[in-house]
Design a protein around this nucleic acid. Sequence first.
DNA 1: ACCTGAACACCGTTCAAGT
DNA 2: ACCTGAACACCGTTCAAGT
Lengths: 209, 209
Amino acid sequence: MRTRPPSYHHGNLRQALMDEAVAMSHEYGHEAWSLRELARRLGVSSGAPFRHFADRAALMAAIAEEATLKLRLRVARDQHRAGAQPAARLKALGHSFIDWALDQPAQFRIVSDRRLFNFDQSGSLQVHFHAVRELTMQLVKQAQACGQLPRTASTQDLALTLRATAYGLVRMHIDGQLPQWQVKPAQARKHLRHALDLCVDAMVTAPGD
Amino acid sequence: MRTRPPSYHHGNLRQALMDEAVAMSHEYGHEAWSLRELARRLGVSSGAPFRHFADRAALMAAIAEEATLKLRLRVARDQHRAGAQPAARLKALGHSFIDWALDQPAQFRIVSDRRLFNFDQSGSLQVHFHAVRELTMQLVKQAQACGQLPRTASTQDLALTLRATAYGLVRMHIDGQLPQWQVKPAQARKHLRHALDLCVDAMVTAPGD
DNA sequence: ACCTGAACACCGTTCAAGT
DNA sequence: ACCTGAACACCGTTCAAGT
């Protein structure tokens, strides 16, 4: 009758380590717990994690890869619903990013902390982020082509600015800075979306075409 | 003739610890070195740092406070040279922030990592950041008053968006993401300034007044 | 007043040994 | 095939003892 406790001896310790590591990162911060504590909480020995991950960095990288795939899938889904207008799709892209970060803050912190693991060494991280970056660039280029964004600025600079705004907004929330800007945590998502839209709209309506 | 080696036994160990900690953070990353290693490099015992700082967090907080004061002084100096136009002063504020972060990346990382120490517990950090935040808000308000920024958007949302853009741009550089956006490290400062100006200009010229 | 260095309770990681 | 648990070389922090 009871399928639990799960038998970590038969194939699911790897995922259990990742899930528990995310839970502990959420509770304490991603550098405030030890692998030994993680093993303890799962009832395995201190050496067991090393059967599945070469080291701490490899565990963190695996978590980051899982989270990054989720971003890509979410973006693909949301783009599908966003219509054809490049500017609207750019907003939707920003909203996907915001929602992704706010729905899994612990994973966002891990993904964006370059010191936890070697980012350049993970093929899947590279691929997924590249895809999102390429989409941003293409949407900006399309928006410029149909006059929604100014052609006087380079595609790269526009894309970089928009990306930085989305990233900066999300980080300010994740780092707990929003209350200092009079934004209550409960209204963070709404405010972040609004602030991003403000930036996109400003550029869309800016002259210099 | 030789005033060196400095006698850490007579009052300058505290500053030496801070300087060496910054140097090691620059070399290895701010969490990749130990207090014992720091003590070793300064030729003192493993317990000596605790004569000057209650714990690791207190050392990091002291470094952050020193760096934050520098930001405030730099902003004040640059504002003085920026003229009277609110939009120009907003750009100057952003440039001060960018220059500050790029001139001392290790300190920027420490300041913006909320997990290293209790941010809310440092009076001086609060005060200095509050001053910069207030300046941002006032400049936005002035810009709205003289028609340089739209009055349809709230002062808070405009300020938040601009601040997020500056912060996001700087973080992308600090986290090594700029090469992926076709920006060479040597041209980072120029590109970041340009991207920020792009955002300010877009808002300045946006209608809805 | 300031620093030493042993001591304590931890780490990450390895690896022979077990099942 | 997967996990154990002792072992190694580290940590941060404390504190009696030194100067």
